[in-house]
Design a protein around this nucleic acid. Structure first.
Lengths: 339, 339
DNA sequence: CAATTCTGCTTCATCGATTGAGCACGCTTG
DNA sequence: CAAGCGTGCTCAATCGATGAAGCAGAATTG
């Protein structure tokens, strides 16, 4: 309480001296296995009180160095700018803590080099396990980790060398597309091909969603217009640019759109409001991802919300069970009923 | 590359043996001060190559244990569910990395007990410095840290025992209120008292914003209606509930509202759409905080966007300069021009 | 050519916590 | 009463990286 200067932190040796006992007794008491080590409850209590009074804090570096498992669990995540990743991180931290693990999370801004650097850094900090969320190149990370004997789980985007937990992108996209097409029929009396915008053509989720998009068109007997598939990247600037270019072709614009993330939707909406197209009438929209304000934007914005709690349950089940067979768990996303 | 079993990680001792040299030489080479330690560049190169080939990764726990500074910088943050905190974390991580620091961030869900636990955990991990963002009780955290000789900076919410960086809440609120009142005059030909909803009455930011809210009313010659100040907490459920209760009083509802965060706005909007009030006509709104989709919600939603880059510049200036005088830096927020 | 300096390393203690091994004492048992 | 056991602790090695101190041998100097 009264230590204001640059006091060296209190260690178990300090406590041992104060208590007139040995450091190993102090250690045993403070990490809870004093029963096993046959320390008397009197000594235990004395030490506990002293530690509290002195404001003792365990030095994790020393502890981890000595132990074989660090109980540190790492996660890398692309961005913090949307509800999906935000809730993943929030829930991940809570679940990790519930298990007595220390979570460390880092954001890699969809930058492959940063992803690798971050993974390396986490390995240096001796994480017991790493969750690679939405990684550009999950297998690269898995390789790094397995060289160090560290387990990995891929989340959101699958890899081929570690268990993965992802949304059922195909199923979600199929249903989302179906709904937008159906809205289109209700509103215009006919179904015309939709626009697909956002995401990277090379990533698994996007290609699965495109597959669902196509399947829904096929089921409705609508031919997909290939020029309307714009997998331009996730960033708002990218989708805004893609819309602008599309409009410049002079062709008539689609009546409905499948937007591949809220973050891409941000760019699309910017373009919609900035350009005079659609004359203030928002087209029929479907968005793969959920945001509370998007839900309020206009009428009939269909959304598919990825089921984060279930996904993280699956992740921790893999971790807790110690399974490491390369399987992909597909979690059905939640179809949000428009308000 | 070819280590697939549970191989013990490579250490500097392994490398030393392979290179036919000593561990200290390896250490010196790998941490870059081999020039100072007069290691020949031939040996240096040999060791570097070996390390690479063996996939050597530094054991940070051991390294930090030995060194006096850990180069780990911690941040606690209340939530990841809005753009404000999301961008704080994202930028914090980037700036920390630029300085060669390792950022660890943890989310405390506005729970005072979790805040303290998280701070303790970070101290155990030997953070050199801790940034307490939006902490319920910053002084408590500062006390914990200073007992361990760890510097602290308060962000978003100020404390009395460490430097703080916060928005100019009074100024921002004054201008935001002024604008909503002015819109009210344009639309209805008169100014009537606005509603203030969201935030905790006990927190500094909220009380400063209420002060700005009052000052703007006073300047416009409008009397504040005390029953319309609802500092019910930040969570959407809280603000939704508060609106419901207000409506149940049967009094006529205000024509404009000052909403104290996007997250509170979420609840307000839910109520607006759920209840029949305002008959689908969104009232004049001002929101202290920014979100791209909120900007698109309706006409004339005024927003004040906290200036995260400038705030974090200020935080790192304090950290870099080593200053620890208890000063509060007020960063003017950005008035967002409605689209 | 002896004395000094410089070069290029190695040795060893250290950081703080953990844990197997072991020690001293008192109590039981045959 | 000796042998055996249980209790309550201490000792010392260890985890991996770091860096002050030191030590050979080569190069330079007076």
């Amino acid at each position: 309480m009264k230590r204001s200067m640059q006091t060296k932190r209190t260690t178990i040796y300090d406590l041992a001296e104060l208590a007139g006992t040995s450091a190993s007794a102090v250690s045993a008491v403070l990490n809870g296995n004093w029963k096993k080590r046959r320390i008397s409850s009197q000594l235990a209590e004395k030490i506990t009180l002293l530690a509290e009074k002195q404001g003792y804090a365990l030095n994790m570096q020393a502890s981890v160095l000595r132990r074989e498992r660090s109980k540190i669990i790492g996660m890398i995540v692309p961005k913090y700018d949307n509800r999906y990743f935000g809730s993943i991180v929030e829930r991940f931290e809570a679940m990790a803590r519930d298990r007595g693990l220390f979570p460390i999370v880092t954001c890699t801004r969809r930058d492959p080099a940063l992803e690798v650097d971050a993974a390396r850094a986490m390995l240096s900090y001796q994480v017991d396990c790493l969750i690679a969320t939405g990684a550009t190149d999950p297998d690269r990370i898995v390789d790094l980790c397995s060289a160090a004997g560290v387990r990995t789980v891929n989340l959101d985007l699958p890899g081929s060398r570690a268990p993965s937990v992802i949304s059922d992108n195909y199923g979600g996209a199929l249903e989302l597309t179906r709904r937008v097409l159906s809205n289109s029929e209700k509103k215009f009396g006919e179904m015309t091909p939709l626009l697909f915008v956002g995401g990277r053509g090379s990533d698994h989720n996007t290609s699965e969603r495109v597959r669902g998009f196509r399947a829904a068109h096929a089921a409705a007997g609508v031919k997909v217009d290939e020029r309307l598939i714009l997998t331009c990247g996730y960033a708002p600037e990218k989708s805004e640019q893609a819309m602008k270019q599309l409009a410049e072709t002079g062709e008539s614009l689609p009546r409905g759109m499948f937007v591949n993330s809220t973050i891409s939707l941000e760019g699309v909406m910017r373009w919609l409001r900035g350009s005079g197209h659609y004359a203030d009438r928002i087209p029929l929209l479907g968005c793969f991802d959920w945001d509370p304000f998007v839900a309020m934007l206009g009428d009939h914005i269909e959304m598919v919300r990825q089921d984060v709690p279930t996904m993280l349950d699956a992740v921790f089940e893999i971790i807790d069970s110690g399974a490491s067979d390369v399987k992909t768990v597909h979690v059905p996303p939640i179809i949000v009923e428009p308000v």
